[in-house]
Design a protein around this nucleic acid. Structure first.
Lengths: 139, 139
DNA sequence: TTGCAAATGCAAACGATTTGCAATAAGGAG
DNA sequence: CTCCTTATTGCAAATCGTTTGCATTTGCAA
């Protein structure tokens, strides 16, 4: 993501600052979907002087230029995700809070169809599945 | 909803109080998906002494006993909906904020299937479509 | 190197929601 | 019908996540 980040910032006239570099690093190291406080914690491990407000501000900018996405799964705080290369939806493990990504062309197609039938052009959607692991039982 | 409300409260040991009656009335009169402040506004039209905190507390209780559902469509404030008789999802008109209900057995089935394939038992889901009306163009 | 707009840290502000507490009222017992 | 216990209420203050104003610092183009 490093390159992508530098390039994207340049393209949008954002300066390559210390805090932004650190935040970008923390993001590319994140293989999960942390919330902002958690991300700030990780950023502070690299540089404890970066403030929470800078993290918030930077995340908004990164989202604006398409580097990340911000989701609110539970109605609670925002969770961060590196810019997806391909579209996908999420399954949230209700026991652990873990987020699993998936995609379903069939569902995508149905969504467009449903919107059209209701007289709308689909401009976006959100699909979240909530589930309990079933493996545990059998194994 | 009047009867349903009295009965449900009785069944769960909730007292039938003045504020609760008013809130239940405002809810059954609502044919949209108001947020809490808007609902409180409507409640106050009937009785200006009912406080916002009582509305919040009552809504939580009503949700607990299944009289209503609370959604957070946009990541912003909570929107209220009378208990649905049948399950459905929502399409949000991005121009007007209006909410349209729909249901799709095909999608429901696919969701269960996807969760299973990922090793999960589906315990819940959220599906929201966002769209722009297309009728306007043609007519 | 210099100069200036962009970016930062801090603390205060915010909007939505929750909570502690003393006062009030529902509704079963007598 | 009145009394008593306990749930419920209104109010104000607290919380939580997020945003913002402002004085200070810092990229970076010239």
């Amino acid at each position: 993501m490093r390159e992508n980040f530098v390039e994207a910032c340049r393209r949008h006239g954002l300066r390559i600052t210390g805090p932004r570099k650190i935040i970008a690093e923390a993001l590319s190291a994140a293989h999960d979907h942390p919330d902002v406080r958690e991300l700030h914690r990780r950023v502070m491990e690299r540089d404890p002087t970066v403030s929470l407000s800078t993290v918030y501000r930077t995340l908004r900018q990164f989202a604006d230029i398409g580097l990340i996405e911000q989701h609110t799964f539970d109605g609670r705080s925002v969770r961060i995700e590196r810019a997806p290369t391909a579209h996908h939806d999420h399954l949230i493990d209700t026991q652990s809070g873990r987020v699993i990504e998936f995609s379903s062309p069939e569902i995508e197609a149905l969504q467009i169809e449903i919107a059209r039938r209701l007289g709308y052009e689909l401009t976006g959607h959100r699909l979240e599945l909530y589930g309990r692991p079933l493996a545990a039982k059998k194994r």
